[in-house]
Design a protein around this nucleic acid. Sequence first.
DNA 1: CCAATTAAACTAACCAGTTAGTTGAAGAAT
DNA 2: ATTCTTCAACTAACTGGTTAGTTTAATTGG
Lengths: 212, 212
Amino acid sequence: MKRGRRKLDNPATAKRILAAAESHFAAQGLAGARTDEIADAAHANKAMLYYYFKDKKRLHRAVLENLFRQLQALIDKLSRSQASPRETLASFVNDYFDFLASHPNYPRLVQREAMEGSGEFQRIFREYFQPFQLQLARVIDAGVKNGEFRRVDAHHAVFSLIGMTNFYFVAARRFGSLFGDDPLSPRALAGRKRALLDLLMHGLLPCETRPR
Amino acid sequence: MKRGRRKLDNPATAKRILAAAESHFAAQGLAGARTDEIADAAHANKAMLYYYFKDKKRLHRAVLENLFRQLQALIDKLSRSQASPRETLASFVNDYFDFLASHPNYPRLVQREAMEGSGEFQRIFREYFQPFQLQLARVIDAGVKNGEFRRVDAHHAVFSLIGMTNFYFVAARRFGSLFGDDPLSPRALAGRKRALLDLLMHGLLPCETRPR
DNA sequence: CCAATTAAACTAACCAGTTAGTTGAAGAAT
DNA sequence: ATTCTTCAACTAACTGGTTAGTTTAATTGG
């Protein structure tokens, strides 16, 4: 069944719609986003949106799955790491920060789902987010066990880590006036990453092993 | 001018509508919340919603202002504190955590505004949220200057603090399965508060002055 | 031919906001 | 004290604009 026919996956139009939908859903939410506006922003006809994605909810789900699929690479790297917990964690925070910086819609979409999550998104969370959390907690636990980290509760540490990292990207645009220039500029991002790792590592490491 | 007419403020119905609106807006957002559902939840007729609050947007704004007014007490206490920066901060985090625990809709509403904030809410943020951030940053700066804290960037520390504190309340319901029982139970909350203060204080304090 | 695409008009549902009218109690008038 | 008046509080049903989703007819290019 080679069927030399043209394939119908991932034409440019579908990608443009997905990208436009991503930013609209991130900014306005599933209920707030307008399908007409998404189509316009994608320079596509509204009918194409239904042609490729069937309906609004499925488009929204496709957006989430697309992002989580990209995040999956980080989780894989995390679970394959052979380095010490401390190095593994530092490297992960670095990667995760860069992921957020290059996918600024992701944290907003995730926060929204965390707040309402129509129940049918439970599946996505179980499939992507929980392994992510558990893997991180495992790394921290390993660090506690081998004495690299202080005796912290790993799950709480993971929550704190994700919370402080995400919040900047969720809120920066609005509260960022305090940081002077654009909070998403390379300069501001570098400063944020440094501050984040500094606070986190000092919070986790026992005195003796502290850097600097 | 006695004009012994009846008074028209704060009838129970308006309060019930405000409370119902708070949880619906927190869970579904301004666009996602349904006025009919809010009215039903408040055991009121939908028209009463318009009678007391004029329209959906104004009801939403009233919800936010009501919460921020309550938060104001914490900011006042923070700015009046005579204690050391370290004690002031620890006491504030404690109070803020309790505020979130007793107003679980607040962080979700704030996150939503941070994500979309129709521009007309800039006013509310400038009036309530910025002073809150600035006051906190001032406390941390004072701690850095008098040597109680490490040399951290105060604004970044504030972002991290708010992010890690809020995130638990925003996400707990959905991701909280990892914490065993109900993440909003007194037991779980006590554990979270402890973990939070522990990580934050170890992150901020120089080695010599660490507790324990 | 066929997949991809466009433009535009259409519909059905939904939902914010309105209206017209009711109730009940506090005053005022007699 | 009884009746009449007024008005805040409340209700049920309605209206009209908006929006998700559809359809149709026509177009392009492999």
